[in-house]
Design a protein around this nucleic acid. Structure first.
Lengths: 136, 136
DNA sequence: AACATCTTTAGCACAGTCCTAAGAAATGGA
DNA sequence: TCCATTTCTTAGGACTGTGCTAAAGATGTT
């Protein structure tokens, strides 16, 4: 299973960036914001968003960028795996930041169905190493 | 740390394919063998080997392909991480084959220094889920 | 209306992965 | 030794993903 990730690392970063901005800020996202937060130029960001849109994860209406329901779901799945694996790598001795940085390289490959399995193998921790809560 | 893998997935597969063939067969490896074992055509394999050679992992002499000492070291490092993570994912409930397939997607990203840390967090298991021994 | 900002298009570049077709080199057999 | 087969290499093409600049088009603010 989970042999072919249906997105690239950059697409993963973009999805999570949008997800996090949507969570934390009131405003609708614009292309320039996405570009800035990914440290790429707007035309590059546009192309990236185009790929994400064609996969059904992102919607663009009159320049305003938002995640589709399936995009939000995908982001939540990646985040769940991310936090679960962070806990594991922190338990191996990495700092929270190192664990985060390492896991970010491949969390999107692992597949959301692994999250509960990993968490239960770790004794269902309630927080990731940074202190953020891990959903049930 | 370990932020930029110094090889691609394909290069990782090639390195390990050569490593395993060197271990198990009477030698020496040829281009066609590498191509066959990676299921690609010889010109594609040649290009891949060229990249690996320019990174100092592979040596080609009169058509015979072998790993350099640093290639062997890199392969051992990836394998150590591979087996350590296999143990972990098997403990999460994956079959040996599923764990192997999953871990193969990102073991080369993790970096060899993690292997002992992972193993010790898992209580220093002596075998991977397939039954192969894990070195001290 | 004018200016600033934002989006989009067009064009280019480069790495990595893959192929086919054909020429060059090596090998093994008779 | 010579030929045939196999192997290696070169040359060319293709496509994805990632990035850029420059300029055109849209939008919005004053």
């Amino acid at each position: 299973m989970e042999t072919k990730p249906n997105m690239t690392k950059k697409e993963r970063d973009c999805l999570l960036a949008i997800y996090n901005e949507e969570k934390s800020s009131r405003l609708p996202l614009r292309l320039v914001d996405v570009a800035r937060s990914l440290k790429i130029k707007p035309p590059t960001a546009l192309e990236l968003l185009g790929r994400l849109e064609s996969k059904g994860y992102v919607e663009r209406r009159r320049g305003l960028i938002s995640l589709s329901e399936s995009g939000r779901e995908a982001a939540r799945g990646i985040l769940a795996v991310h936090r679960a694996l962070e806990v594991f790598f922190a338990s191996c001795g990495l700092s929270a930041d190192d664990a985060c940085g390492l896991v970010a390289q491949f969390d999107y490959i692992v597949g959301p169905s692994m999250a509960p399995m990993i968490l239960s193998a770790l004794g269902n921790p309630s927080k990731c190493p940074h202190g953020y809560p891990i959903q049930p």
